[in-house]
């Protein structure tokens, strides 16, 4: 199978030789010893499930859920766009609800079940929402895309659960999948490439196929 575009890091990409790598490892060891000597009280143990897999981590108390996923579990599908809850690129599901993972500390999630973009599908076996995003070209640079897709899946669940939004006209009626509802509920996920019109079409198609 041909590699259509660069996928995984490979050692041939590094000018760094194996000897140099060993040197890095020893420096790293020293740095870790320094932390564990003085800073035990600044870290905590936390366990949570990510995409069905149990993880037990010792983390700096300041580590966000986003950085725990990206820097400690190397699940880099969840993106850091702003680190301030302004862009939505870090959207993940925690116990069935979407959140901005940059706005919550990892230590607050002991025992939680977390689903990231990596949990929804993989190349060759995509989630229907991922299929629809590819089909409708609901992205360009791809950096906001995991967050958009996690939000898209959550939005349809929220409408299904009859949770109203700012544009829901009649609170006594059942919430419905309209373009206005989708746009309103997706507005926490910024796409600077401007794929919004295509994203709405992708979500609408997935909603329609469920109905």
């Amino acid at each position: 199978m041909i590699e259509i575009c660069p996928f995984e890091i490979s050692r041939r990409d590094l000018l760094v030789s194996s000897a140099a790598t060993a040197a890095f490892a020893s420096v790293a060891g020293n740095a870790h010893a320094q932390i564990s000597g003085n800073e035990m009280q600044q870290s905590s143990n936390v366990s949570f499930k990510v995409n069905g897999e149990e993880h037990a981590l010792e983390l700096d108390n300041r580590t966000t859920l986003l950085d725990a996923l990206r820097e400690h579990l190397h699940l880099t599908g969840t993106k850091k766009g702003c680190d301030h809850g302004q862009c939505g690129a870090c959207t993940v599901m925690v116990d069935g609800r979407r959140i901005n993972s940059c706005l919550t500390l990892a230590v607050m999630h002991d025992g939680d079940e977390i689903t990231t973009i990596e949990g929804y599908g993989r190349p060759g076996n995509l989630h229907p929402m991922q299929v629809a995003f590819v089909k409708h070209d609901g992205f360009q640079c791809g950096y906001c895309t995991p967050g958009q897709i996690c939000s898209s899946i959550a939005v349809l669940q929220e409408i299904e659960a009859n949770i109203p939004s700012h544009v829901t006209g009649d609170l006594t009626e059942k919430a419905s999948v309209t373009s206005a509802e989708i746009r309103e509920r997706m507005s926490g996920n910024i796409c600077r490439c401007g794929a919004y019109s295509n994203i709405v079409e992708a979500i609408t198609e997935v909603a329609g196929s469920k109905a």
């Binding site: 996928f7 990409d13 760094v16 599908g121 993989r122 991922q130 895309t145």
Partner: peptide
């Protein structure tokens, strides 16, 4: 359709900060 579409929609496309080699301890 984009040939990198599956990588991008599944979060497998690696951006600058995300190239991780388990044998290197990045600072």
């Amino acid at each position: 359709h984009r040939i990198d579409g599956e990588l991008k929609t599944t979060g497998r496309a690696k951006y600058a900060y995300e190239w991780h080699d388990p044998d290197i301890d990045y600072a």
